[in-house]
Design a protein around this nucleic acid. Sequence first.
DNA 1: GACTATAGTGAACTGTGGTTCCGGTTGTCA
DNA 2: TGACAACCGGAACCACAGTTCACTATAGTC
Lengths: 199, 199
Amino acid sequence: MTEMLSSEERPLRADARRNRQRILESAGAVFSESGSEAQIDDVARRAGVGVGTVYRHFPTKEALVAELVRQKFELFAARANEALELPGEPFTVLADMLRANAADLERDVVMQEMVAGLDDHIWTVVQPAQDEMLRAIQVLIDRAHRAGTMRPDATASDIGMLMCGLCATMAQTARDFDWRRHLDLMIEMLRGRPGPAQA
Amino acid sequence: MTEMLSSEERPLRADARRNRQRILESAGAVFSESGSEAQIDDVARRAGVGVGTVYRHFPTKEALVAELVRQKFELFAARANEALELPGEPFTVLADMLRANAADLERDVVMQEMVAGLDDHIWTVVQPAQDEMLRAIQVLIDRAHRAGTMRPDATASDIGMLMCGLCATMAQTARDFDWRRHLDLMIEMLRGRPGPAQA
DNA sequence: GACTATAGTGAACTGTGGTTCCGGTTGTCA
DNA sequence: TGACAACCGGAACCACAGTTCACTATAGTC
């Protein structure tokens, strides 16, 4: 009855573990460069394995993408939790984090696509990580509100929509949007009081 | 040499003109409901014509979508030009226009997709109409800036990115974003001075 | 070293949906 | 009304990309 172990318990064979890792790395590179239009064959070729091997580890292309997105959201969640320990003024800490996330997002096309337009199926996989991130962000926002350094009518949901919009803007190759300046403006607008430059 | 007329000069036969109109109407309905994932067959069926007829009028699916998007942008441009004649305070006029556009966008899935992530080819078709819209918006913004009712560091490009983000948010079925509240907040933040509610 | 469960391979398969094309139809004009 | 060009219909075509599977290779184990 030792085979009663659920699928994730059974240790992978050494080569399988190695390949799974390679596939994830290649997929990360390929999808972040070309977005979800990249093909499984590209991922397999780059990883130096056959397509069948990719499918041994991930049942569908969608599942592979979902895993990548989940990992990235976990990174964001970790970053948000670290931010909670940082000493600085809470709104500044939040703003810095937003900028750091944006810098990551800038070179990850598939994340731009997914954050801008996450479909239902991937969403279920990613939700836990995103929830954790939002929880930490909420704490930061509460602190900033209490400190009076952030508009009281801005919520965590607004931050989410902001990032959603930012990703859509980044993904725009056709129009020459300067999302960096836009993000700065957004952050400025979220501040409790406009700066002295207000003519 | 009368056939030297360029393709758009030659008057269409009555039935062709009728069908072209029907196709545009059906496509408008189908694509605004289902987005660009809707199929040509659906458009044809709804229009009561064969697929071949659709392809007689529009060389590719992309061209058909582009024409629909172009028409909508022309509507927006017209709306922006009308706004220039309106009597009220310029920032309020601008804000009202944004809300009106958003209301349109809300029930047009393909427009959400396109504004959020416009690909290069469709862009070339739509650009003139969008440029005209932006020109009018720029005038409104200038007036509002002069009146001091709008943040001086906000530009027409920010309005574009704002709408881009708003569309991305609307297109999100997985997450329960309240884009209406978000738009209100954005408008509030774009105002020259925060309201008296600023605790 | 031999045995076997696990893993890898990639050519072939498949479903989907845009596009074509030709036989039949219809508006237009003399 | 006859002739012809323009137009319509929709079955068939085709390309593409995700997925499968029969066969081979290999890691782990006795």
